[in-house]
Computed example of a mutant assay.
Amino acid sequence: MPFNIPASALPLTASDRELINFARKTIDATTDAGADQDGIHTMGAAVRAADGRMFAGVNIYHFTGGPCAELVALGAARAAGALQLTHLVAVGNHGRGVKNPCGKDRQILADYYPSIRVILDAPEGPFSVLAQDLLPLAFDHRAEQV
């Protein structure tokens, strides 16, 4: 199946690359896994606020589905008072590069942050898209609320 790039796709900017590097430095400094090992902390994420501040998070792997790095970074931003978020990225430890969000993260982003730009990896290289484009025909959580 060919990869369909959403209409909201944009090439990376210098600030996108800065966010990727911030996430990479965070996971490289905090991973608990050796190069050929599994660990509890193997993914890093970073989110940028509208005022330019960046916040990072790392995952906590657990067989029950522990929090993904993206969700930890979103929580860190909120805890610091950042209410308007513009960009998000996740990266793997040991230089594994940009990683696309899992289904749970995509649903949360679509529900609560549909206008945040998410940096994705693709065969042609990384780019950013609006979170609302991550799940075509997604379940609409807001429409189901009473």
Results as ranks from 00 to 15, higher is better:
54 M>R: 09
132 Q>N: 09
47 V>I: 15
80 A>Y: 00
137 L>Q: 15
68 C>Q: 08
127 F>W: 13
113 Y>G: 04
22 F>D: 02
123 P>C: 07
47 V>Q: 01
9 A>Q: 06
52 G>F: 13
16 D>H: 10
66 G>T: 14
18 E>C: 07
109 L>A: 01
68 C>A: 15
78 R>E: 14
67 P>D: 09
117 R>I: 02
131 A>Q: 01
2 P>M: 12
133 D>N: 09
139 F>Q: 07
126 P>T: 02
103 G>T: 07
88 L>T: 01
138 A>I: 04
73 A>E: 02
67 P>T: 08
109 L>T: 02
9 A>S: 11
122 A>D: 09
111 D>C: 12
119 I>G: 00
102 C>M: 01
43 M>G: 04
50 A>P: 07
60 I>G: 15
18 E>Y: 08
19 L>H: 08
64 T>Y: 11
82 A>M: 07
9 A>Y: 03
105 D>P: 02
57 G>S: 06
105 D>C: 15
28 D>G: 05
132 Q>W: 08
93 N>W: 03
77 A>H: 04
2 P>G: 09
25 K>R: 06
106 R>Q: 13
40 I>W: 00
100 N>P: 01
89 V>W: 02
132 Q>L: 11
76 A>C: 08
51 D>V: 11
35 A>G: 05
70 E>T: 00
105 D>Q: 07
30 T>S: 10
101 P>I: 00
11 P>M: 04
33 A>T: 10
103 G>K: 06
92 G>H: 02
104 K>M: 09
133 D>V: 07
72 V>E: 14
145 Q>I: 13
123 P>A: 14
11 P>T: 09
33 A>N: 14
135 L>Q: 14
23 A>G: 05
133 D>S: 08
119 I>T: 01
128 S>W: 06
22 F>A: 13
138 A>E: 07
90 A>M: 08
52 G>S: 15
36 D>V: 05
74 L>D: 08
19 L>C: 06
112 Y>D: 10
64 T>F: 09
5 I>V: 15
53 R>S: 13
93 N>R: 14
111 D>R: 08
137 L>P: 03
55 F>L: 08
93 N>S: 14
84 Q>V: 08
24 R>Q: 05
32 D>W: 10
137 L>R: 10
55 F>D: 05
9 A>F: 02
121 D>R: 01
123 P>K: 07
7 A>Y: 04
92 G>T: 01
114 P>D: 03
8 S>P: 05
13 T>P: 13
38 D>S: 09
20 I>K: 00
3 F>T: 13
38 D>L: 14
78 R>Q: 12
34 G>T: 05
32 D>I: 10
70 E>R: 01
103 G>L: 12
144 E>L: 13
119 I>K: 00
109 L>I: 05
130 L>C: 09
36 D>G: 10
122 A>W: 08
7 A>L: 12
5 I>S: 15
116 I>R: 02
18 E>I: 12
75 G>W: 03
19 L>Q: 11
79 A>Q: 13
64 T>P: 03
60 I>F: 14
